[in-house]
């Protein structure tokens, strides 16, 4: 049996005086130990509701969930030792306490073996560069520092599964990169199963071989990222700034979408390489500048859902 087994899961919220809201509808999903799965979808698609049911915070309206063999909402405190949860928009840490105090408290809360706790703390503070911040109250940390603190807090008890809800939201490029490296290392070295929700396609590209797309509470896609682009018919865009204005560029594998003075937009399939197209353009035209725009995940999903 898979580590996470979800079948026909639904959750409705009753709203006074209005029709009930179906946040999750007949969702089925199965995740094996050691997988890194990206869970994506537009706002309000049911991502957070799913995570909350997987962790036992919310009780499902119908359907069944088995995480590590148990029903999360019934065995919530028992399961808690085996999972770690990071909510990107909120902190697990105690606002007024120094980071170190929060970590010490968590050692008591989880009854982590003191040796193990010390070793983990040493390793994570090293990997996430938290050493200088241990004695700073959480409220004085920057968003990126706090996120690193939160991730450490979620991992000190050696969870088998780590749920990350929007872990990179609001972080700068450097912090995002560091965080992705860390998560990849975690999965590779400890075999921690990762399920992350995100709006950032690059999180998925960097981390996940598997993507589950949810919209209106139902999985509309479950497979590889490349497959998602194919299925969604998504395209990348090559923006070419020519030295002089010219008629629409003609190269194999790309079509011109727009021309604006010396600037032209060429679209090509997302799973194709940009290199031959760039080479062809540069060989034929006088090019001042080039850039590649990645497809917007929201567009891909919208496309997927409209079918």
């Amino acid at each position: 049996m898979a580590l996470i087994e979800v079948s026909d899961l639904s959750r409705t919220f009753k709203v006074r005086g209005r029709a009930p809201v179906e946040a999750v509808t007949d969702l089925s999903l199965s995740i094996e130990a050691g997988e890194m799965v990206g869970y994506i979808g537009p706002n309000g698609a049911g991502k957070s509701t799913t995570i909350k049911m997987l962790t036992g915070i919310l009780v499902p309206t119908s359907g069944s969930i088995r995480v590590a063999g148990v029903d999360p909402s019934r065995k919530r405190t028992q399961l808690a030792r085996r999972i770690g949860v990071v909510f990107g928009q909120r902190t697990t840490l105690w606002w007024d306490l120094p980071l170190k105090d929060s970590f010490d408290l968590l050692q008591k809360v989880y009854r982590t073996d003191p040796e193990r706790h010390r070793a983990n703390l040493a390793e994570f503070t090293e990997l996430l560069a938290l050493g200088d911040l241990l004695h700073t109250p959480v409220r004085q940390l920057s968003l990126g520092q706090r996120m690193r603190g939160d991730i450490t807090a979620a991992l000190l008890h050696d969870p088998e599964i780590l749920y990350l809800d929007e872990p990179t939201i609001g972080l700068d490029v450097v912090s995002k990169g560091r965080l992705r490296d860390f998560l990849r290392t975690l999965n590779a070295e400890r075999g921690t199963t990762l399920l992350l929700t995100t709006h950032d396609l690059q999180d998925i590209e960097a981390l996940c071989r598997r993507v589950v797309v949810i919209d209106h509470g139902t999985a509309v896609y479950d497979g590889s990222l490349a497959g998602l682009h194919q299925e969604g018919g998504s395209t990348r865009t090559l923006v070419v700034d020519l030295v002089d204005e010219a008629p629409p560029i003609s190269v194999a594998g790309a079509t011109v979408q727009r021309v604006e003075g010396p600037r032209q937009w060429l679209s090509f399939p997302a799973d194709a390489s940009a290199a031959p197209i760039v080479a062809a353009v540069v060989a034929t035209y006088d090019v001042a500048d080039l850039s590649v725009q990645e497809p917007d995940i929201e567009d891909v999903i919208r496309e997927l859902y409209l079918r």
């Binding site: 999972i83 909120r90 697990t92």
Partner: peptide, 11 residues
């Protein structure tokens, strides 16, 4: 959201 945090702890 503090309650959500508490709900995922083994206490």
């Amino acid at each position: 959201g503090k309650l959500d945090q508490m709900l995922v702890r083994p206490v």
